[in-house]
Nucleic acid binder design. Structure first.
Length: 406
DNA sequence: TCTGGGGTCCTAGGACCC
DNA sequence: TCTGGGGTCCTAGGACCC
């Protein structure tokens, strides 16, 4: 039975949502109609373009580039800040519309969802539902979406990426040759900037070229990744729309520092704040970690990471912090550092762990302290309680903690 | 010139065991 | 002295996504 899949993608999500909100607040201009972007904080050295208006795009501004560059391309560019609380709200509003059509929805990101309507069509045509979602979103929420229509996720996603904004496109198997194969290979999902030149060197320039390349040749050259590329180029994707929220595989936080730091003491202060965030989130998910990972980025953008297996699974701030500090001391080579990150890995569910004979939860006293602090954070806000060593870096991580607070 | 932060998955190489 | 192969686990790094 052929599956009935939609992919819904919000057009210029962050920018559109900001525009809708500002109009509602009485702002006289729709920022979608001027050269504008949503960007990070340049003073904090996180100034990259996160979303752009169609007008900004005409100036050659691309997502991910430094705002500094974007300004050079257009001197009238207007920059607006991110507001994740707002973005989450609009994302949820959109999700509610989808629920009128199916329960089988996969949240692929804050602004993209896959919908499986295979068992929810009740006599309607998939394409009609696609248009209905498209129209309703604009009418009810004030922003626009592209909807891709097909029989698997990959094709639906590729379809939603065709002409924008506010469009519905189909990409069924019989349309692959006409609609997808002429596109540059860089347009294919999962073909990134490192792979494109490698393919070009092999004479593979379009998705069609890739589809017609010998599968075994690609597998020899690129391993598993080669097979995936070939499958995608041929429109093959068996993956399911997964509706349920699965436990995360890892949890991490990182910060770009306002200035490079050069002492282990300064780095450790950042580590304290990051470990608190990570452990707090871990406990909130009711998970335990078996691995701690620390990442450092030098001022030349060289990334280092080291990890450590823990003696037993834990969600204790103290335990994670002690290990992170130790890793840090081992790996730090006295270079100027611009980014510090802490991530926990190999997560397992707390309940399941307690049943296991071999595992033991870290010491109870520490757990109680964490528990009390979590309650305060949940009740009075993330910053209501903090460690002494963290105070002077609070400004740096403040913004992200705001996000977590919600 | 300046270059985010949250993730997932894969790979190569080394340690160690039998 | 010189030497196997299979398997698992761990580590560091890198690719990709939004």
């Amino acid at each position: 039975m052929e599956r009935q899949i939609l992919h819904v993608d919000v057009n210029n999500a962050f920018l559109s949502w900001t525009a809708v909100y500002m109009l509602k607040q009485g702002y006289p201009i729709d920022i979608r109609t001027i050269p504008s972007i949503i960007g990070g904080d340049e003073e904090r050295r996180s100034g990259v373009v996160l979303a752009k208006s169609p007008v900004a795009k005409k100036f050659g501004i691309v997502t991910g580039e430094p705002i500094y560059f974007a300004r050079k391309k257009c001197n009238k560019l207007e920059v607006f800040p991110v507001n994740f609380e707002l973005f989450n709200k609009y994302s949820n509003d959109l999700y509610k519309i989808f629920l009128d059509y199916t329960d089988k929805i996969e949240r692929f990101s804050i602004d993209e969802c896959f919908l499986d309507l295979t068992h929810f069509l009740s006599g309607k045509k998939l394409i009609d539902i696609a248009y209905e979602i498209n129209h309703r979103t604009e009418k009810e929420l004030g922003f626009t979406v592209n909807v891709g229509v097909s029989s698997n996720k990959l094709l639906a996603k590729m379809a939603s990426d065709f002409e924008k904004p506010n469009k519905v496109h189909t990409l069924y198997e019989y349309e692959i040759e006409d609609k997808m194969w002429p596109l540059p290979v860089s347009d294919l999902f999962m073909i990134g900037r490192k792979t494109v030149p490698k393919l070009y060197n092999l004479g593979i320039k379009t998705i069609g070229d890739l589809a017609k390349t010998d599968k075994n040749f690609l597998m020899n050259k690129f391993g598993k990744y080669g097979l995936m590329m070939w499958n995608y180029a041929n429109g093959i994707d068996e993956s399911e729309v997964i509706e349920k929220q699965e436990d995360p595989k890892s949890i991490g936080n990182s910060v770009t520092l306002p200035h490079d730091v050069t002492s282990i003491e300064e780095i450790e202060k950042i580590i304290v704040a990051l470990c608190e965030q990570v452990a707090f989130r871990l406990r909130k998910c009711n998970l335990l970690a078996n691995t701690v990972n620390v990442q450092l980025r030098t001022k030349d953008f060289k990334d280092y990471s080291h990890q450590k297996q823990l003696r037993c699974a834990t969600s204790s701030t103290k335990e994670i912090l002690e290990n992170a500090k130790q890793i840090c001391v081992e790996m730090y080579k006295k270079e100027p550092i611009r980014l510090v990150g802490v991530r926990v890995d190999n997560l397992e569910n707390r309940e399941e762990t307690q049943l296991s004979f071999f595992s033991q939860i870290s010491d109870e006293k520490q757990e109680k302290i964490d528990g009390v602090m979590d309650k305060l954070k949940n009740k009075y806000g993330y910053n209501s309680i903090t460690r002494a060593g963290k105070l002077d870096v609070q400004g740096i991580v403040k913004d992200k903690e705001k996000k977590i607070k919600k």
